[in-house]
Amino acid sequence: MPPVVQHTFKVVVLGEGHAGKTSLVVRYVQGTFNDARKATVQASFLTKHLDIDGSQVELAIWDTAGQERYHSLAPIYFRDAHAALIVFDITDADSFTRAKSWVKELRTMVGPGILLAIAANKQDLDRDRTVPDADSKAYAQSIGASHLQTSAKTGLGLEEAFEEMAARVLQQHNAAAATQQQAAKYLPGRRQGTMRLADEATRPPPKRSACC
């Protein structure tokens, strides 16, 4: 029996096409890496169970499609997300630019409530690097996001990226719960063998202010 999930947090993964979003998520969730994956069309959904200092957390991860053309789909995935992992490819400066525009869009569309993390991906390709870590770190700091050096190929930084994110969301969540009685209804208990995503099962979706 898996431990009872106390919290489900929704994480959206965004970034330029071919930045390695799917590889990163699949490596993290399933522990496998495959160079030749199909380009993501629409978005894929994966879950990962975490134990954060005794709290049982489930991450509901939406891995989105990166090509510009699919931009119009993104809001259905990020609009009620607790956190966003924005991935760029350190060998591709354009993908870093795109990461910045994602941040702007999230700030505009979702507001300050969504937690951000920047993943400087493909660290295994260091010799082809065109984006220095110092640059992306400075940028992450300027927007209050965490910064992680990751490689889907080697597995570098993935656990840290998601665990750090989950811990921050949990912290915010607990702080909000302490002050807002109302927050209690966003802590659904897990039923035998099945579970509900708090955000998905509640219509209309809860306001972000409830936990942030």
Partner: peptide, 20 residues
């Protein structure tokens, strides 16, 4: 009831005409 949107699964169907 479950909050599942058709866009979340059928987009790829239409985009790739079910090939995938």
């Amino acid at each position: 009831n479950e909050g599942l949107e058709f866009l979340q699964f059928a987009f790829r169907w239409v985009n790739c005409l079910l090939i995938r």
